[in-house]
């Protein structure tokens, strides 16, 4: 129980640090009215907007009222169009979730089986070609992969749309762009986790008891090899979200990432802060879920934590 409370407390502190860090850095970067309003506007109008956006008060007062509003779920209004910042961001969430979700499925669906094959047939040609492909996969910058795909499939072969998000055809290239480097990474992690497990003495026991390859891999090796892979899955959330920002920009996919690059260019403080907080929250949650899954998959962690708590 104490273990759980510590985790939650840590997550809350991390969130608070992110909010504070983002708030102060963005506020100290200059007066948004200088960027958002035309140059030739008179000072009175500027003051009006400063008051409207709450920029005229001391920064600490702004900070406390921002925190207070946040706790009530109020992320402020977009400087651009006076709409609720959270509403603007929330509308884009399904698109980003669809993109990252599909990419994650692709990467796990390709990476894990390849990793297993490579480990089971270690040092064979299967292993070598999987490892070679995976080095190529994660060396390829995703923005360049996206551009290559557009060149080949949109401009040359003319079979897939290069931008937008109307149909499932629009999803193929962005999801592949985002998923392939993760597939390569998961193939590597799965392989090394499997090799670790396959060398364990209980695998020899299973073999001596006469269990076939399929049974040994599926029942004895996989559950144990899953533990490190799940951990890495949690760590990769941040990378996945960062990759989504780039992928969405390359393919003009109308998700959070594209909103962020636009909002950042327009200095829309409220929207940028809202997106950063939501992304940080996603990461913190993903890490917490990973921790819990870890304890669930590996009873040793649970027992260890309980012993530590006593």
């Amino acid at each position: 129980m104490l273990w759980f409370v510590t985790k939650i407390l840590r997550a809350i502190i991390t969130m608070w640090l992110v909010v504070t860090f983002v708030f102060f850095v963005l506020r100290l970067s200059g007066d948004p009215t200088l960027v958002l309003l035309p140059d030739d506007i008179d000072e009175a109008t500027r003051d009006f907007y400063r008051q409207l956006w709450g920029l005229d008060r001391p920064i600490m007062a702004q900070y406390w009222s921002y925190l207070g509003a946040l706790l009530q779920g109020d992320f402020g209004i977009s400087f651009r169009n006076n709409l609720d910042a959270f509403q603007l961001v929330w509308e884009r969430v399904p698109k980003t979730a669809l993109l990252t979700g599909t990419a994650l499925l692709i990467s796990l669906g390709i990476g894990i089986p390849l990793g297993i094959f490579a480990a089971v047939y270690r040092d064979s040609w299967v292993d070598r070609s999987v490892m070679a492909v995976s080095v190529f996969g994660f060396s390829m910058p995703n923005f360049f992969l996206g551009i290559l795909l557009i060149l080949i499939f949109s401009l040359h072969l003319r079979v897939l749309p290069s931008s937008g998000s109307g149909t499932w055809l629009h999803l193929i290239m962005p999801a592949a762009t985002l998923g392939i480097s993760f597939a390569a990474q998961f193939a590597r992690y799965t392989r090394s986790a499997m090799i670790d497990v396959l060398n364990k003495s209980y695998m020899r026991t299973a073999r001596s008891k006469g269990a076939g390859t399929a049974r040994r891999v599926n029942l004895h090796a996989l559950p144990n090899a899953a533990i490190p892979v799940v951990t890495i899955l949690g760590f990769k959330t941040g990378e996945l979200l960062g990759g989504a920002v780039i992928t969405e920009t390359v393919f003009a996919w109308p998700g959070i990432g594209r909103l962020l690059t636009n909002a950042v260019a327009e200095r829309d403080l409220a929207v940028v802060q809202c997106i950063m907080i939501l992304l940080a929250l996603t990461m913190v949650l993903a890490n917490a879920v990973t921790d819990l899954a870890y304890g669930w998959l590996d009873p040793r962690v649970r027992v260890g934590a309980k012993a530590g708590a006593k």
Partner: peptide, 14 residues
């Protein structure tokens, strides 16, 4: 725990 790439993006823009 911080999405550093995204934070960096905002920092550089601002």
């Amino acid at each position: 725990a911080m999405p550093w790439f995204i934070v960096a993006l905002a920092l550089l823009a601002f």
